[in-house]
Nucleic acid binder design. Structure first.
Length: 513
RNA sequence: GACCUGGUAGCUCAGGUGGUAGAGCAUCUGCCUUUUAAGCAGAGGGUCCUGGGUUCGAAUCCCAGCCAGGUCACCA
């Protein structure tokens, strides 16, 4: 790479050498600043034109624009809080220093000290009386006017995206606040945050294909978790009555505007609660986040008005299908299969009736639900961890929360009958044997835990990324992930030698201490 | 996985009925001490995504592939 630099990169490296030749460290160790860009704008907002601050301030940041005028020049310095204009002239800092200043590039990080004044054009500006290079930038920034718009580049080089597109930073600040607020709300209600294993021996807690890994020393395969569910329920067995975990899960599936192979989930379990209680909790958590971050419950997503004012509609899956013109109420399996076939659902002959109902629902209901809706009471076949419905046979007490056609949450009255759970796992084992890669593993340890006894429990999982999409009006999950998954560019792929090291037998591998 | 669209200078883009590549910004040189897409004058910068094919000649046409975005499918 280093031998074939473009002209622009060469020029910057030459400047780096020149700076060093002058005895200046282009990468010094620390810097004391006493103000921020936003702070300067705020503190000196009252300065009149031509008026100057009594005190000096020191700020640091990245040079984002430059307008040279011979022996004086303007620039904008950007820090985490925003941008402020700076003005340097040779008279003030001396010829030697000004020569250095003049050669600074956009992208360089500097610290500046001086009084603040207001220019003819009324902009609050720091007059540079001294400055220091804090980091020489060797890579040119994108164009100042159009910026960085290429989506691929924005995702691959998120650091540049964050520098030049302030609204991107805003999304991630909001994301952090949403998560923080949910955490705080739960803690205030007496929930305990916990961490459970990410490397799992078994696949469980959701219908999804896992990523596989391998532990060399133990000589055993491991799965990256697809959900923390089964561990969290063990904790309820152990006596924690209100627990939650916010963490990453990994699902080996396709990528789309609402799917990334790794994503953040929050799972919450509350003993002595059922799914009706959990619906209320869901409303509470999401509306609290919306109020805090947006200040309103009437939001707009992709140009569509969505009203988050609770209570949200509760609609049974059967009823939702009926409203979509698919009436399966009181019908037997044969009749439902016939309806599915009429609706163009083909190739599911050998698949269970529950799955067929799910396909009908996915295809004809979910995408059309725009306002917040709890779809409740799902077929038992596709819900192996949910408790049988107290009234409806063949169904479980489960809900999915749909907003803007996206599933945001999934929850049940948790199955705590160990005998029933064993039967459900057995069914899953059959499916797995028949080639269903998403079926649950038979988890004997989890069954043993249930045999000790788990109180009646309501459980909830919320897709944090999708929630953030909704609350920040971002069209793709990639826009709420700092580093969304991308296929590697050819040059970014691991070198053959590196792969060779990884593939070696553990015995011959030098152990890091 | 299927289909559609795109990939040209560091960035944003134009061009292309086949004749060997352009703009703006950025960069470099000179001038310029209140500008803000600063200005003026000049200069440099390209595997036109990759590989094949057709052709006297391909950035352009054809085929295959890679990467991305979108739609659909799969999928919580």
């Amino acid at each position: 790479m280093t031998e074939e630099l473009s002209e622009l990169l060469k020029v910057r490296r030459q400047k780096l050498d020149e700076i060093r030749a002058k005895g200046i460290d282009p990468f010094p160790y620390r810097f004391d600043k006493d103000q921020t860009a936003a702070g300067v704008l705020k503190e000196f907002a009252k300065l009149g034109e031509g008026e100057e601050s009594k005190q000096k301030v020191t700020i640091a940041g990245r040079i984002m624009t430059k307008r040279g005028h011979g022996k004086a020049s303007f620039a904008h310095l950007q820090d985490e809080t925003g941008r402020v204009q700076i003005y340097a002239k040779q008279d003030l800092i001396g010829q030697d220093k000004y020569e250095i200043y003049r050669k600074l590039d956009m992208g360089d990080i500097i610290g500046v000290t001086g009084h603040v004044f207001r220019t003819k054009t009324k902009e609050i500006t720091l007059r540079v009386e001294d400055f220091q290079i804090l980091c020489k930038s060797l890579h040119p920034l994108p164009e100042k006017w159009h910026g960085l718009t290429d989506k691929e580049l924005r995702y691959r080089e998120r650091y540049v995206d964050l520098m030049v597109n302030p609204e991107v930073k805003e999304v991630f600040v909001k994301r952090s606040r949403i998560i923080s607020l949910i955490r705080r709300t739960l803690e205030n209600k007496g929930f305990l945050e916990v961490d459970t294993p990410i490397l799992n021996m078994l696949q469980g807690g959701a219908a999804a294909k896992p990523f596989e890994s391998y532990h060399d020393a133990l000589d055993m395969p491991l799965f990256m978790r697809i959900a923390p569910e089964l561990y969290l329920k063990r904790l309820v067995v152990g006596g924690f009555e209100k627990v939650f975990e916010i963490g990453r899960v990994f699902r080996n599936e396709g990528i789309s505007y609402k799917h990334n192979p790794e994503f953040t989930i929050i799972e919450i379990y509350e003993a002595y609660a059922d799914y009706n209680d959990v619906m209320k909790l869901t409303e509470e958590l999401i509306t609290a986040a919306a109020k805090e971050v947006l200040g309103t419950l009437k939001i707009e997503y992709k140009g569509e008005k969505i009203d988050l004012t609770p209570p949200w509609k509760r609609l049974s899956l059967v009823e939702a299908l009926k409203q979509a013109g698919i009436d399966i109420g009181g019908k037997n399996e044969k009749e439902i299969r016939k309806i599915a076939k009429l609706k163009g659902i083909e190739g599911y002959e050998e698949i269970g009736i529950g799955k067929i109902i799910n396909v009908l629902y996915d295809k004809f209901v979910e995408a059309n639900l725009r306002q917040p809706t709890f779809i409740i009471d799902h077929p038992i076949e596709t819900s192996p961890l949910a408790k049988k419905h107290r009234d409806k046979t063949g169904q479980v007490e489960r809900f999915e929360l749909i907003i803007a056609g996206m599933e945001l949450a999934n929850a049940f009255s948790e199955l705590n009958d160990p005998v029933d759970q064993r039967q459900r796992f057995a069914k899953q084992a059959e499916l797995k044997a028949a080639g269903d890669q998403e079926a649950e593993s038979m988890d004997e340890d989890f069954l043993r835990a249930l045999e000790y006894g788990m109180p009646p429990t309501g459980g909830l999982g919320v897709g944090i990324d999708r929630l953030v999409m909704l609350l920040t009006d971002q069209p793709s999950i990639r826009d709420v992930l700092l580093f969304p998954h991308m296929k590697p560019l050819a040059q970014a792929q691991p070198k053959a030698e590196e792969m060779g090291v990884l593939d070696q037998e553990p015995a011959s591998k030098p152990r890091a201490s």
